[in-house]
Computed example of a mutant assay.
Amino acid sequence: MIEPGDIVIGTLPINLVAEVNRLGGTYQHLTMNLPAEARGKELTAADMERYCAQLEPFFAASQDYARAEVLVGEWDNFNGEYGPERDYAVRSTINTEGVILKLLGENTDTRNMHIERIPGAWRINISMDPEETTMQVSLRDDGQILYE
């Protein structure tokens, strides 16, 4: 029953935090410096203050699969937008150089995007063929965009 913009506060397991985030909610985790002897016991407000209770925002997502609203197609100058908007799956794989995002959808060619941090910029490699880069874009920290 989570809706975009909802705030969930608690001590949820990671898979439920990911579900809250997937549905558009934000998650605030109740953290405390709780000693072993205080675990599993009812705590008073004074106990929570003594153990430095605080709310911290956390974000979680499955590394392998996420649903996303993705705009596909060419830019429509008349309407000033990409289109049409459809529900697609985005599969991600994390490696030591960055992350690879694969867009999966009905009647859509599979696209891979490899995003990595390089000195002074974020580089995005886009490919239609996993063996070959079709386009490379660098978003530099100084605001310049380089198409390679």
Results as ranks from 00 to 15, higher is better:
M48C: 14
E49G: 03
R50N: 15
R50L: 15
Y51N: 09
Y51K: 07
Y51R: 08
C52H: 15
C52Q: 15
A53I: 06
A53F: 10
Q54M: 10
L55Y: 12
L55T: 05
L55Q: 01
L55H: 02
E56I: 06
E56S: 07
E56K: 08
E56F: 01
F58T: 03
F59G: 06
F59K: 04
A60N: 00
A60C: 14
A60V: 01
S62H: 13
Q63C: 06
A66C: 10
A66H: 05
A66R: 11
V70Q: 01
V70E: 13
L71D: 11
L71M: 10
L71S: 14
L71Y: 13
L71T: 03
G73P: 03
E74W: 06
W75Y: 12
W75V: 02
W75N: 07
D76V: 04
D76H: 02
N77V: 03
N77F: 08
Y82Q: 09
G83K: 11
G83M: 03
P84W: 11
R86E: 13
R86H: 02
D87A: 04
D87E: 15
Y88F: 08
A89C: 03
V90W: 03
R91I: 02
R91F: 05
S92Y: 04
S92I: 00
T93N: 10
T93R: 13
I94F: 12
N95F: 08
T96Y: 04
E97W: 01
E97I: 00
V99N: 02
V99M: 10
V99Q: 07
V99F: 04
I100T: 14
I100R: 11
I100E: 12
L101D: 06
L101Q: 09
K102A: 14
K102F: 04
K102W: 07
K102N: 11
L103E: 07
L103M: 09
L103H: 10
L103I: 06
L103P: 01
L104M: 09
T108N: 08
T108D: 08
T108L: 14
D109T: 05
D109Q: 13
D109R: 15
D109K: 14
T110E: 15
T110P: 02
R111I: 02
R111L: 10
N112R: 05
M113R: 12
I115M: 14
E116T: 03
E116G: 07
E116I: 00
E116M: 11
E116P: 00
R117M: 09
R117C: 09
P119S: 15
P119I: 03
P119F: 13
P119V: 08
G120W: 00
A121F: 05
A121C: 01
W122K: 14
I124T: 05
I124M: 15
N125H: 13
I126H: 08
I126S: 12
I126R: 12
S127L: 04
S127V: 00
M128Y: 12
D129Y: 07
P130L: 13
E131H: 14
E132F: 07
E132V: 05
E132S: 11
T133A: 07
T134R: 10
M135F: 09
Q136H: 01
Q136W: 03
V137M: 13
S138W: 00
R140D: 06
R140P: 00
D141G: 12
D141M: 07
D142R: 00
D142V: 01
D142H: 01
D142L: 05
G143K: 07
I145E: 09
I145D: 05
